[in-house]
Design a protein around this nucleic acid. Sequence first.
DNA 1: CGGGAATAGTTTAGTTTTCAACTAGGTTGT
DNA 2: ACAACCTAGTTGAAAACTAAACTATTCCCG
Lengths: 157, 157
Amino acid sequence: MLDGMSEPRWLDAGQQRDWRAFVDGSLRLHDLMDRDLKSKHGLSESEYEILVRLSEAPGHSLRMAELADHASQSRSRLSHTCTRLETKGLVRRESCPNDKRGVFAHLTDEGFAALERAARDHVETVRDFFIDVIDPEDLQAIGRAFRAVNERIAEVR
Amino acid sequence: MLDGMSEPRWLDAGQQRDWRAFVDGSLRLHDLMDRDLKSKHGLSESEYEILVRLSEAPGHSLRMAELADHASQSRSRLSHTCTRLETKGLVRRESCPNDKRGVFAHLTDEGFAALERAARDHVETVRDFFIDVIDPEDLQAIGRAFRAVNERIAEVR
DNA sequence: CGGGAATAGTTTAGTTTTCAACTAGGTTGT
DNA sequence: ACAACCTAGTTGAAAACTAAACTATTCCCG
């Protein structure tokens, strides 16, 4: 019975409360991290995230599409952000020899150094507002849960 | 020994993995919810959130500062968003009699109707990509954890 | 009371993000 | 080989967001 009019399956009180806690918490947490990185290192959270992913890639470089994927950003957004990072001298773009459409984003030494400095402070903030206020068991639950969420989202795109 | 040079307390592998799962998951989830609400109802996630909080307030209205707080938005952002919602006819602003600096944001009937329509679809998406893929125990852990995060963040502001 | 500090909210300007259009190179099928 | 289609990435304009300055009111305290 395909029925657009039927009552939706509303969340129960507990589910509602937990979902809301997540929505609020994640908004505030991202906001906090963003301000913190900006004020101390002049990097937005999304710029930071790009540097992190590049630093973990073999040769400190990654194709744009892959990087967009790892950093959970749209390609368009990544293009703009990379332009910014390039003018700051933290990233360099070079075209891919095999596929002439392709572009590699490459973390510069200066970029790596900037990331190292930022990461030291960032990890303290992550601890202070996230890790250290959460029961270790609950942290593992968060890991399990969000890995499942990521898998589910990956299915539809 | 207040020492800016000492090694930071890096996260262990598991903490790192769980923190990352959350960062990615929350970015993708917010992105998904935003697109979903926009395409089906022409509302951004933050507009939706404002309507929700107003709908729960006594008399469907709330002082701007309170609303900003409930919706985890800056006051500036709320002002802009409210202007938009007002031109859409979903919200009305009226000045506060007691405190002449103050402004009440009030959900219009049209706004309430729009929210009801949006909420029906939204809850399905929340289930589909969040509630239904998470073990109920883990969901409760998320609730506990993010309530703690919110409390910690509230301390510093 | 009166003056300085604090609070509520808006506005302006600058930056970032989104959306859709676009360029260009690759792939497939005939 | 070529036409149709797909993929990679960029761009430009519009929309949304941020930060800081600003207006107006209220609070606090000598």
